[in-house]
Design a protein around this nucleic acid. Sequence first.
DNA 1: CATTACACGATAATTATTATCGTTTGTCAA
DNA 2: TTGACAAACGATAATAATTATCGTGTAATG
Lengths: 151, 151
Amino acid sequence: MTQSSGDFTAMFRDLSQRHGLACTHQRQVIYQALVTAKDHPTPEAIYESVRARIPSISLGTVYKNIKTFLEAGMLNEVSLHHGSLRLDARLEPHHHLVCRVCRNIVDLDEPDVAPASYTGRLPRGFRLERQNVEFIGICASCAKQQSSLTT
Amino acid sequence: MTQSSGDFTAMFRDLSQRHGLACTHQRQVIYQALVTAKDHPTPEAIYESVRARIPSISLGTVYKNIKTFLEAGMLNEVSLHHGSLRLDARLEPHHHLVCRVCRNIVDLDEPDVAPASYTGRLPRGFRLERQNVEFIGICASCAKQQSSLTT
DNA sequence: CATTACACGATAATTATTATCGTTTGTCAA
DNA sequence: TTGACAAACGATAATAATTATCGTGTAATG
Ligand SMILES: [Mn+2]
Ligand SMILES: [Mn+2]
Ligand SMILES: [Zn+2]
Ligand SMILES: [Zn+2]
């Protein structure tokens, strides 16, 4: 290897500076675990992975830094709907419009939605059953509140 | 009104029978709250709504029956990803393939995905920013395990 | 009606996440 | 370099969401 770990350190120091974050050892290892994982890991999984390199790290530190990375836009959450269960008694397949701030969910009329399509190869043996489409943005009342913060 | 509450009671009694569930007062009121709500409510919100009609109901009963309805297929969850945070360090917009059983998430190559489209009207003032597409099904290893249960 | 399996309410336990606080460490300017 | 300061860390307590337990009550069935 050609100084690969040194490269990552330098890259992460730079990335941290651009986002105004202190470049700590814990952050670097957490971030590396995140970019290395190819399975959209949970905080707990990241914690386990990081502990192999920093046995003394605290789970709270992992959570705090994940939140920091999310706020900095260095990381995304797979779904807006973790945290609490949202229920839908409408059984026909349909899709949703979601506000990314208040997480309000409204049904879209099916005739107005043209579904996505995937023309690539599926993992061997995967049986595709349906698709879920979320149109995401910001609703009127949340937009108003956000702009009043900037003013 | 033309016996509307009686109609609902009869309908729910029938629905319960078809799914092999006992038709209790609590279940009926919970179910009615679910079908009436137009905002994809949380269990807590259902609890609040039901308490107006059955002040003595327990939150545990609400959770238990929601789970019962979900298992019976009388109800759906909006997202497979509540419960625990899943992280994605890949920042470019992209879409996912998800197994509904083990909840494994795999990235799809963007060139192979044609996005959905919505031609209807948006709520006034809603600013659409992006879309999230999940192709959902069952992965090979989960399919194997499920079939072995049936065998 | 009597039987019985299942559902209910109360409450304890678990899991996921966030907050607090005293100590340590990275940053930045002298 | 070095010191001052703000920010991050680890330990741990607190909160939120959900599930489990258990004794009592009730819907289903005949
Ligand atoms: Mn819906
Ligand atoms: Mn992804
Ligand atoms: Zn909103
Ligand atoms: Zn699977």
